[in-house]
Nucleic acid binder design. Structure first.
Lengths: 239, 239
DNA sequence: AAATGCATGAAACAACCGTTTGACGGTGAG
DNA sequence: CTCACCGTCAAACGGTTGTTTCATGCATTT
């Protein structure tokens, strides 16, 4: 601890305890949730002092915010990137909903490699970040989402034009709910279906999820009728 | 309040403050979440003493447990009732997935009338109860779910026999995720889609949701193909 | 009327929370 | 060298947490 012979610049020193706190915070937040972890839990795990959090981050809330943004920002950025790429690829033609869903969901798994967290914890943390009730999210985090949602709404609207905007937004949120649940309970669900080929796990799960959700989005549109599905029991539902 | 001329038996007196605490707890838990509410928040709102919670319930955790069970128990009971009814109605024939989904989701809204909570708060509370991470639920609450899930898995298996058990369970959980999100963000979502006929209400939202989810369940299972497909190894799942 | 059982109340409990303080010592600039 | 700066640290801050104690008084029973 005291025996650090290497020369450190100020910049290096600055990231000393700060980085350790950040990593410990990520791990504990992922494991137990943002509310259940105290700053003393964090500092005692990484051998830092309680004051370090207030010194480096300006308070517990700011730390939470920083941890969240470190995940939300790049993920949302990659979402938009993939969306643009898909739109460009298909030009005037409608992008298949599967590709839109892929652009929205897949960044959650592609970003995992750039994290120091274990894969399992990474997903848990994402699930927690995104499933905190919206009105309790820090404003900078909340503001991250608005433009992304807008872009995806428009894209889905173009891909499934038969749906009213209202119906589309509803279905989008049904999808989001499923996605969050998948993130949060990923380990539990995969333990449940253990036994087959060892690894692909999350990527395979997301493929499953995309297929499931795409069918929901297409329900009642021309694309789904093409496959000739009798509209199930008539009059059973009131709309 | 004080003017209670009626004769009270011991039994009546016992439910005096206890009931007030219970109602205040439900409201506050629904509004702010189970973790964010202290016992002093509860007792000060309903004019009770802090000691009352430990006296009547045996601690804060037990109070949370009781509040949860008061909602989970009757809802799960009605789920099973509706499931039985559907199975009986269709006899040997496969129950349409829409009816299974209805049996699983609709009790959330039919049970609202029997609660003293406002409708909005009731849904919020349900969303919170069911979306608490599974491993943090009180054990009695968790035990409530196991048999219910088992019955519904089996029912869905009969209705969509083309799906492997594994695929079916995954889709079921995607559906659950969407349902929880609907419950938790119901007010926010409905405010978003305001503008048409005055009362969008939960029932319409659930109908939307059932239609969306049914399509997801049926994806890839065209009834026209009657070919016997090799099932995945049994005993794959622990439930 | 006296005694018993039970719900309530104010107060105190120890433990923990996030935050602040002020002293200490190594580092780099003048 | 001297001095100012910066990251670290133990300690203490005021506040809130869930729980417990014990006294009080009402209602029912003897």
């Amino acid at each position: 601890m005291k025996i650090r012979t290497e020369v450190k610049t100020r910049r290096t020193r600055r990231t000393d305890a700060r980085q350790r706190v950040l990593e410990a915070a990520e791990e504990l937040f992922a494991k137990h949730g943002f509310d259940a972890v105290s700053i003393r839990d964090i500092t005692s795990r990484c051998g830092a002092n309680v004051a370090a959090i207030n010194y480096h981050f300006g308070g517990r809330d700011k730390l939470v915010e920083e941890v969240m943004l470190r995940y939300v920002e790049p993920i949302n950025q990659e979402r938009l990137l993939r969306l643009e790429s898909a739109l460009q690829k298909w030009g005037a033609k409608a992008v298949p909903v599967e590709e839109l869903l892929d652009a929205f969901v897949r960044p959650l798994v592609t970003r995992v490699k750039k994290s120091e967290l274990s894969e399992r914890l990474f997903y848990k943390l994402c699930g927690r970040v995104f499933s905190e009730h919206i009105d309790t999210l820090p404003q900078p985090v909340e503001l991250q989402f608005a433009p992304v949602l807008q872009r995806f709404y428009d894209a889905f609207q173009s891909s499934v034009p038969e749906l009213s905007r209202e119906e589309l937004v509803w279905r989008f949120h049904f999808m989001v709910g499923g996605m969050l649940y998948l993130m949060s309970h990923q380990d539990l669900l995969q333990r449940m279906s253990r036994g087959d080929s060892g690894e692909p796990s999350m990527e395979a799960s997301i493929s499953r999820f995309i297929r499931y959700s795409a069918a929901g989005f297409r329900e009642g549109t021309r694309a789904s009728i093409v496959e000739e599905q009798p509209m199930s029991p008539q009059g059973f539902f009131n709309f």
